[in-house]
Structures are given as structure tokens and as C-alpha cells.
């Protein structure tokens, strides 16, 4: 067991040699000083260890958000918040495990809102809980989806796509957000499109788009923006009620002229995207703990230090309270039968 000294030496050298670390240490330090923020009483979390589960492997958006938020949330709660990656079943393994966790707030997870909501509504195999079972703590980021075409494809605008003769979408798999979005877009906008599944991850599907193997894909705006700015992909449509700030010239789904049924589908799709990346707890969190967590998370994501860190990583915070999320869940539950039907059809079509 020769592991102890080098690590400590590493850390002390790190701290000693580089003066500019002070702020960074502040960000990750596991200070146990009591919460300074007002609001909910969080004495029950003092000195506890709270696990924030990321349902994917390290790297990528969910992991980044969790790691940005964890130290600040820890300070607010007066406890240590530890990020754990638990990859499996496209994020569902961790969610199902969370369902079985003791509902005391010491086990939380950042959730793939679109994927889980879509799967839950479609009744996908592997989601062994209802969406409204979850204790919604707050959404930390919206997941504004954008529809892009590769620079090597012949498509430059949405109109080109509507006239397309077999537009091919890349998708990472049945039931993934890129799969649900693409299938519903085909249905809402009524164009000749098909979805190619079987890409290992968003990295591989993005490469296929850039290479021109497929025509385009849907994806998170914040992870697509690099490729758009580099000219490797053309943005065609933002899946939201209004245009994105960074893409003022790209139309939004909400502003299109659609028939009644299509409009209802589009609204549900936008609602689903609004789910974004929420932090959730197991079912049956006691009221006092839930309100403490909600307040603490809100305090964390409004903390200027966290916002600066998030900005630096290009992971913008977009807050939606737990109560608003509960409302959204209710609305999605009531979503039109047509929407649920389309989702289910997409899941089954493969």
C-alpha cells in the first residue's frame, strides 16, 4: 500500500507550488461550515454525505453539471456532496436504483429529463416507475434541442428538408432523445425522413453527420454549438417556443404554422424538452427535507461563483423550481393521446 504518500504529496505540491489555486480550492473544498443561505432549515443534512448520481460515465453534460453543482450544494446543506457515476442501461439503471433508495435526501441524481420522460410516456421497457413518483428538486439546465444538417448534406434550411427525398437522421438508439425528437419532427413537419439507429454514442453519430454518412440529427444546442460555429453543421430548427439567443436566424418550432394536431404534438415535444436536466430524489422524500433541498439547490444555482464556473464550462444554468417541474410532469401526463401514441409508435418502430 504505497498510495498514501504520493497523493498527499501531490496535493500539497499542487497547493504550494501554484498560488492561483485558491479560488479553485474554494470551489471544490469540502467545507463543512453551516449553510449561510436562508430559506429551508437544513440542519438534518449537517455532516451527512449526500451522493449525487450521474447516470453516465465521466465527461459530457450531465457529469459536468453535477460536478459544478456538487460543492456549492454541499456548502448550502452543510454536508459533503459526492458525485458518483453509475452508467448503465442508457441512464435507466441509476434511475431505477434511485427508486429503491432510502428517501432521506442523501441520494440524489441528475436525470436525463427528455429520455426518461419520453420513455415513461411511451411505456418503455426498463422504466420501472412513474414519472410523478420522483421527488423533483429542481431543473438546473434546460436542454434546448436543435435540429441540424451536416455541412456535406445538401440541406441548408428547414425548407430544403421539407422537400427532401429521404432525409436520414443519425440516432444513438431506440428511445434516446435524438430518436424521439427525430421521429416526432418527421410526424409534425410531415417530410420524407428516416432514422438510422445503431451509433454507439453522440460522438459517433455526430461524426457520421460531419462525414456526410447521414444528413443530420437532433441534439442539445449547447453541445452542438461548437460544430455549428465551426461550420461543420447547419442549424435548421430550434425545438422550443422561441428562437435561441445564440441562433437568432434559426426558426423555432413554436413559431411554425402548423395544423391543430401537429401543434399539440409540437407543444408536448417542447414541454418534454423543457424537462431538461433536473435533479431528482427518490419517491416519498419527507416535506421538510424536500423543501430544504429545493431551497439549497436554488441558492446554489444562483450563487455567482457557481454561475461563473458554469459559464466557463459553457454549461449555462437555467433554473426551474421543483414545483414547476411537478406541474410540467402533470401536463405531460395529460399530454394528448396523439403524442403518447406517436412516442409509443416511435419506440416500437425501431
Amino acid at each position: 500500500m504505497f498510495d498514501r504518500k504520493p497523493t498527499r504529496a501531490a496535493f500539497s505540491a499542487l497547493l504550494g507550488a501554484i498560488a492561483l489555486m485558491s479560488t479553485a480550492c474554494d470551489a471544490v473544498g469540502t467545507s463543512t461550515e453551516a449553510s449561510a443561505g436562508g430559506g429551508g432549515d437544513c440542519s438534518m443534512f449537517e455532516g451527512e454525505t449526500v451522493t449525487l448520481v450521474v447516470p453516465y460515465s465521466p465527461g459530457g453534460g450531465y457529469d459536468s453539471y453535477a460536478r459544478i453543482i456538487a460543492p456549492h450544494l454541499g456548502k448550502e446543506l452543510g454536508s459533503e456532496v459526492v458525485v458518483e457515476n453509475e452508467d448503465g442501461a442508457g441512464g435507466l439503471l441509476a434511475m431505477n436504483n434511485l427508486m429503491a433508495a432510502t428517501p432521506d435526501g442523501t441520494e440524489l441524481a441528475i436525470m436525463n429529463g427528455v429520455g426518461v420522460a419520453g420513455g415513461a410516456l411511451a411505456g418503455a421497457e426498463g422504466i420501472r416507475f412513474a414519472l410523478d413518483d420522483l421527488s423533483m428538486i429542481g431543473r438546473v439546465a434546460e436542454q434546448q434541442a436543435v435540429f441540424v444538417a451536416g455541412a456535406k448534406s445538401p440541406y441548408r434550411t428547414l425548407d430544403d428538408v421539407l422537400k427532401a427525398d429521404g432525409f436520414e437522421f443519425a440516432s444513438t438508439g431506440v428511445g434516446a432523445a435524438d430518436f424521439v425528437n427525430a421521429n416526432l419532427l418527421i410526424e409534425i413537419l410531415d417530410f420524407d425522413g428516416r432514422v438510422v439507429t445503431g451509433f454507439e454514442g453522440s460522438d459517433e453519430s455526430e461524426l457520421a453527420v460531419v462525414r456526410g454518412d447521414v444528413d443530420g440529427q437532433t441534439g442539445d444546442l449547447d453541445s452542438r454549438i461548437e460544430a455549428i460555429e465551426a461550420g461543420d453543421e447547419h442549424p435548421l430548427l430550434v425545438i422550443d417556443t422561441k428562437r435561441a439567443d445564440v441562433l437568432p436566424d434559426v426558426p423555432a418550432l413554436g413559431e411554425l404554422d402548423l395544423g391543430q394536431r401537429e401543434r399539440a404534438l409540437a407543444e408536448s415535444l417542447i414541454d418534454m424538452s423543457a424537462f431538461g436536466r433536473p435533479i431528482v430524489g427518490p419517491p416519498g422524500l419527507p416535506e421538510d427535507r424536500l423543501s430544504c433541498l429545493r431551497q439549497a439547490l436554488h441558492n446554489s444555482v444562483t450563487n455567482p461563483k457557481l454561475l461563473a464556473a458554469a459559464k466557463k464550462e459553457e454549461r449555462p444554468i437555467s433554473w426551474l423550481s421543483g414545483a414547476e417541474l411537478d406541474e410540467l410532469v402533470g401536463r405531460l401526463g395529460d399530454a394528448s393521446a396523439a403524442f403518447q401514441q406517436s412516442l409509443r409508435a416511435a419506440h416500437e418502430r425501431g
Partner: peptide
């Protein structure tokens, strides 16, 4: 392209952004 070739490279991509 900002497309990581491995899990480690995916985390490094975060370093690019930061």
C-alpha cells in the same frame, strides 16, 4: 472536431471549454 475518441478524451473536452 470536438468529438472525443475515448472516455478520457471526453473529459478533456471539458477542459477545452473551460
Amino acid at each position: 472536431f470536438g468529438i472525443p475518441g475515448s472516455v478520457g478524451a471526453a473529459v478533456l473536452l471539458g477542459a477545452f471549454l473551460i
